[in-house]
């Protein structure tokens, strides 16, 4: 069941990327999607997660806003003659547990202002984040936990 859903999604992506909505191309996309799913079938999660589409769109909107802001912030920082940097790595205790959520959070953190995820502890309880301005790690932690982590929990309820 989940294979078919994912396969249909892949077919849609194929049709969009090749740019022709003919029946032949749909069939070809379906076949290629099935073959690539066959290759990664062991890595697929056991079940499709429940997803809230609206919350996911909100998360995507927040992400693009933060991405633009962070690029502008880094650009200005590069241009200031005296970069007042206080970089450092702080540990962030994770409350989300599933692998794909941690991956998503790490990616989001990397693309937001002044933070870059470096490592996850072996027991998946700590995320280590490098920050350009690390004089107040507590504030950074609070920003992550009330921003992205909360949004991720809302978008993918257990």
């Amino acid at each position: 069941m989940r294979f078919i859903v994912v396969n249909l999604l892949l077919t849609l992506v194929w049709v969009a990327v090749t740019g022709s909505f003919t029946l032949h191309n749909l069939a070809l996309g379906f076949a290629i999607g099935a073959m690539s799913l066959l290759l990664v079938r062991e890595q697929l999660p056991a079940s499709l997660h429940r997803v809230r589409p609206v919350k996911m769109l909100l998360l995507a909107g927040l992400f693009f806003k933060e991405l633009t802001l962070s690029a502008i912030k880094v650009a200005f920082m590069v241009l200031t003659p005296d970069m007042r940097l206080r970089p450092g790595i702080f540990a962030y205790p994770l409350t989300i547990t599933r692998d794909f959520e941690i991956t998503l959070l790490a990616n989001l953190i990397t693309l937001t202002p002044g933070t870059l995820s470096v490592d996850v502890s072996d027991d998946r309880k700590m995320l280590y984040v490098h920050a350009l301005d690390c004089h107040d790690p507590a504030a950074e932690r609070r920003a992550i936990s009330t921003g992205f982590e909360r949004r991720i929990r809302e978008a993918f309820p257990a």
Binding site: P87, G88, N107, T110
Partner: peptide, 27 residues
């Protein structure tokens, strides 16, 4: 972000140090 993350992790595990300006390193 995945490649940046991998490179940072590899560099840190290999022992490349942070700059002297750094204030903390909890990893």
């Amino acid at each position: 972000p995945v490649s940046a993350h991998l490179l940072a992790k590899a560099a840190h595990q290999a022992g490349y140090k942070l700059t002297n300006l750094s204030v903390t390193d909890q990893l």
